[in-house]
Design a protein around this nucleic acid. Structure first.
Length: 112
DNA sequence: GCTGTGACGTCAT
DNA sequence: AATGACGCCACAG
């Protein structure tokens, strides 16, 4: 047992709290966890979360609101379809009104 | 067991 | 402002 949770578990803990119809970024999660330079690990965590249906991996995009992870989903457009089914508009892999639908862990969960 | 790579982002120049 | 280098560290080869 480690002195602290695995980084992946911490990522999942935050990701699970992303509300329906909202999105956040890899970097935002990393920064919230005190590891601002570990955004890539958040991506790996999402990659490893495929078995876990509790993790809304489609709600995590890059800092610009671009669906950089869409190729890791089954099917060509599954990630976009999941987002659109939640009322999010995606145009050419870019989330529209990104700032409006963006879910900031610091703002929503509080500064740690 | 070392090296390259990666669902990214920040830092240095 | 824009571009390039580096960090993070798990995993594949």
């Amino acid at each position: 047992m480690g002195t602290s949770e695995n980084f992946f578990e911490k990522v999942y803990k935050v990701a699970k709290q992303i509300p329906y119809g909202r999105v956040t970024s890899y970097g935002a999660i990393a920064k919230y966890l005190g590891a601002a330079r570990s955004a890539r690990m958040v991506g790996w965590a999402m990659n490893a979360s495929h078995n876990n249906d509790e993790i809304p991996a489609h709600r995590v995009v890059n800092r610009k609101g671009l669906l950089t992870g869409k190729l890791h989903f089954d099917g060509t457009n599954l990630m976009q379809q999941l987002l659109e089914s939640e009322g999010i508009t995606v145009n050419d892999n870019q989330i529209q009104n990104f700032e409006t639908v963006f879910w900031d862990p610091f703002k929503e969960l509080g500064i740690q």
